[in-house]
Design a protein around this nucleic acid. Structure first.
Lengths: 219, 219
DNA sequence: ATTTATTTTTAGACAAACCTAAAAAATAAT
DNA sequence: ATTATTTTTTAGGTTTGTCTAAAAATAAAT
């Protein structure tokens, strides 16, 4: 029921390499975990013995049903901490990942449930990735670039494809952050800039260059 | 500059056993760390090699100047997380320690500075122990039982000697928590109950039994 | 269909942190 | 001042997770 930091990192890596759907190769894992293929083989045997993965030598590995459950729990912890760091501690969107890598291994279930509650049960992390709930379920809304959002369609900012300092500064200035409700009021054909409405505040215009890098979720 | 979880636990244990002042015995360490004396000896050699402790075989060990610095940093992390858990996530005062034991090993300095700021630079944890600042300095106020607080002396609730459910419920009802400003307005000789003023709110009375278990700090 | 190249696994080692059992030093008791 | 007791250290092993180098299996290329 309780796994080591290493085991958790392998499970998470397999999950992130889509190992709940397709088999993941030993080399791919070694690559993402920054370790050697021989070490990966050792761990795969261990995870197989614990029934967290399905693994036949030379055939790659996939997560078992139980493995997926464990993976979703790790992902949940990771993304909740990312949300906390960005939203409460005002970390930049590009800084949260590294710190969350450490925090995600703190295993108290009560801590995570309370944190979730404290944060107001957020459904997306600062990168726009969905946060699994305590049962492992997560929302799968369409994520599109702001430039592609239809007119007058309520949406929520869910991520960025450019996290440069300049971009972050622009968003801070416009008071746009993760979860901000936006709606496009008008599109200008000339330069493809868009006029947006934020929550119930004043309208304003965003250039195509910027809008291209803002991801939003809508129904 | 960066230490393993085990190393940190040893350093913290030595600090908690007053190892910044008097030598700490191998057995005492084995006891508090729930390990065997032989394992302690191994680690003491390692910590000595890293100049974190002063250690001569058979003579016990003490923290070096550098060791004290490291210890204060761990204690800072621990107590800040305890404060966070109690204040923000509404953990009971007796639940925070175990979870903070895990969180304290997350080593990002920026995380801790931001957390400190987010919490409003608290100076005492939920047990009434002082939280070292980023330089390792901490406040050393007199801690006395509420029954012993002189009349009309502003003080702050800093801890409890009884953390039973009943006690916690009583305090919640009276809206008393860590850091609450209190002042004794009147003492009743008959039953030794005390009339207290909380912040600028209405006066009310607390029995001697309860007041005995409430610790407060004052100048 | 072989040969060549790539991927993966085995075999044997190593460091960290722990253990048990036995030896050595320090302390207490006669 | 010896002897007995307690404390601490050494010696040798175990587990977890890593490594290198060599062997085996799979995939690609002629």
């Amino acid at each position: 029921m309780n796994y080591s930091v290493s085991e958790e990192n392998y499970i998470k890596a397999i999950y992130n390499l889509n190992g709940n759907k397709q088999p993941v190769s030993t080399n791919a894992l070694a690559e993402t975990l920054d370790t050697k293929p021989a070490s990966v083989t050792d761990m795969l045997k261990k995870l197989k013995a614990k029934k967290l993965i399905v693994y036949q030598p030379y055939q790659g590995c996939r997560l078992s049903a139980e493995g997926v459950k464990v993976a979703l729990n790790i992902v949940r912890r990771h993304r909740l901490w990312e949300y906390f760091l960005a939203e409460k501690l005002k970390f930049e969107w590009n800084e949260v990942h590294a710190v969350a890598e450490e925090l995600e291994h703190v295993s108290s279930p009560k801590l995570i449930e309370r944190l979730d509650e404290y944060l107001g049960f957020p459904r997306f992390d600062p990168h726009g990735d969905p946060i699994p709930d305590h049962e492992g379920k997560m929302q799968t809304l369409k994520q599109v670039k702001l430039t592609q959002l239809p007119l007058h369609t309520p949406a929520k900012v869910s991520g960025l494809t450019d996290q440069s300092t300049d971009m972050l500064e622009l968003l801070r200035h416009r008071r746009i952050s993760i979860g901000t409700a936006v709606e496009i009021n008008r599109k200008f054909g000339f330069d493809h800039s868009v006029e947006i409405k934020i929550q119930d505040n004043p309208l304003f215009i965003i250039s195509e260059q910027a809008a291209q890098h803002i991801l939003v979720h809508h129904e």
